[in-house]
Design a protein around this nucleic acid. Sequence first.
DNA 1: AAATCTTTGTGATATAGTTAACAAAACGTC
DNA 2: GACGTTTTGTTAACTATATCACAAAGATTT
Lengths: 218, 218
Amino acid sequence: MAQEPVKIPQATARRLPLYYRFLNNLHSQGKQRVSSAELSEAVKVDSATIRRDFSYFGALGKKGYGYNVNYLLGFFRKTLDQDELTKVALIGVGNLGTAFLNYNFLKNNNTKIEIGFDVDESKVGTTIGDVPIYHMDELQEKLVEQGITVAILTVPAPVAQPITDSLVEANIKGLLNFTPARLNVPKTIRVHHIDLAVELQSFVYFLKHYPITEKELI
Amino acid sequence: MAQEPVKIPQATARRLPLYYRFLNNLHSQGKQRVSSAELSEAVKVDSATIRRDFSYFGALGKKGYGYNVNYLLGFFRKTLDQDELTKVALIGVGNLGTAFLNYNFLKNNNTKIEIGFDVDESKVGTTIGDVPIYHMDELQEKLVEQGITVAILTVPAPVAQPITDSLVEANIKGLLNFTPARLNVPKTIRVHHIDLAVELQSFVYFLKHYPITEKELI
DNA sequence: AAATCTTTGTGATATAGTTAACAAAACGTC
DNA sequence: GACGTTTTGTTAACTATATCACAAAGATTT
């Protein structure tokens, strides 16, 4: 697996998929070149931040010209491992889970939800947006069989920890947790936490307590 | 509206709803006191960070004892404006939107989704999880009428910008955007962006490129 | 081909967030 | 009530991120 010469900052890594998507848009619009200022307008990230982000990968642009869309796109395709498919399992096919299944990640990217699990017998055996749904009892067997090591957890909070324990046994490496539970896992497993309730609540807190400042209005 | 004596850091503000939820858990378990170390274990936030976060609000704990659960809970209830209900509109009642509707935010908090909008005639006129669904055509009228100034945007990407323009006209103040579109809004409006595809993609990038370090394993 | 314009890449600086470490305070026990 | 223990609150150090500002390079125009 090709590794960047220098570790890029996490904040930069988080913006890469965003850049990649917008470069795709530009490409399909037939645009040949783009400046950091234009890109900034589109993705709402400061242009200096964009230039700095790109610079971690070397000198990708040309002074007085900007960036060549095709070249940049090709570069990011390689960098984001567009050629190596990452298979993901979706655990829990409720409303949130179904939202994921209907999102066609493959369009821009090689991350693919390969399989879903639920306890609801009316869902087991069906396919949703091309993804087959199995019973939760088959979790370990199927994951091991298909060598899947990344999972999205969208189950009810009370069963989050027991199901996580089962995922750990199935040798999972990364877990994107959408439940409110804070999961206990061995240290070798990466868990990323997105809590919709917390997101909404802290957003509301922000609105109330952080009025927009003079500086922001300029 | 009561304002904190000192502006607390954004990072702290984002953790408050999390603390609040866990304090509620402790309270319903009948726990009287808790130390920053215990809380750290539960919410997976460094104990020094927790103590620092709490300290922005004054000396809430007692040395050699920890924090009194009831007192802390009461304090946070006030601080997070638990008593002043914030009404939120949900724009787009697809799978993701429905996931929000079925989430009972009121349980721990006074943020409430009051109304939903969709173009699907089979949804218009129904209620989902207690929330009435109206047609998108009635957006401006209903929002102004009910004085709602916060919206969650869960519509298909191509209609995100036109609907946003309509929300701006309806005098919205904050927008929690779950679509991949980067929205253009006047500077006086706060937009917070959560892009599920980007979250998944950057998580996968992390797993591939940021192996767990020695330090993290200790 | 000279002059002007554009835009990168980056040093320097500013801002934000985390964590180690420990004195001081209060607890709990004997 | 003296003494060892616990745990806070905070100073200082560290780490991470964002942004300013500008020289240098190259593009574009005349």
